[in-house]
């Protein structure tokens, strides 16, 4: 499961922004929202006749496979970096 998401934004004539987001504490704070999202996903699965367990399992696999992903985009003096650890 991802533990830390790093976001860096460099823009010309502005101070660079660096944000480190600890995933677990943020997920705990947003727990009510997470529960609502999971409930909505379960309802969607039932409506579209998709196995709820399979769908939740596949979604969990995607979330657990995220660590190591890195997206680094630069154009001129503007740069955005998103790294998941």
């Amino acid at each position: 499961m991802p533990q830390l998401v790093t976001v860096k934004v460099n823009r010309p004539d502005r101070r660079p922004v660096r944000v480190w987001v600890p995933v677990l504490p943020v997920a705990l704070v947003l727990f009510p929202v997470v529960v609502l999202v999971v409930l909505a996903a379960i309802v969607a699965c039932v409506v579209f006749r998709i196995g709820v367990v399979r769908a939740l399992g596949a979604a969990w696999r995607v979330i657990s496979a995220l660590p190591g992903a890195r997206f680094d985009i630069e154009q001129g003096r503007t740069a955005v970096l998103v790294a998941i650890r």
Binding site: V62, A65, L66, P67, G68, A69, R70, F71, D72, I73, E74, Q75, G76
Partner: peptide
Amino acid sequence: PSRVNVRVPLQL
């Protein structure tokens, strides 16, 4: 100059 550098885990 522009640069895109993406690293995606194969597990993903």
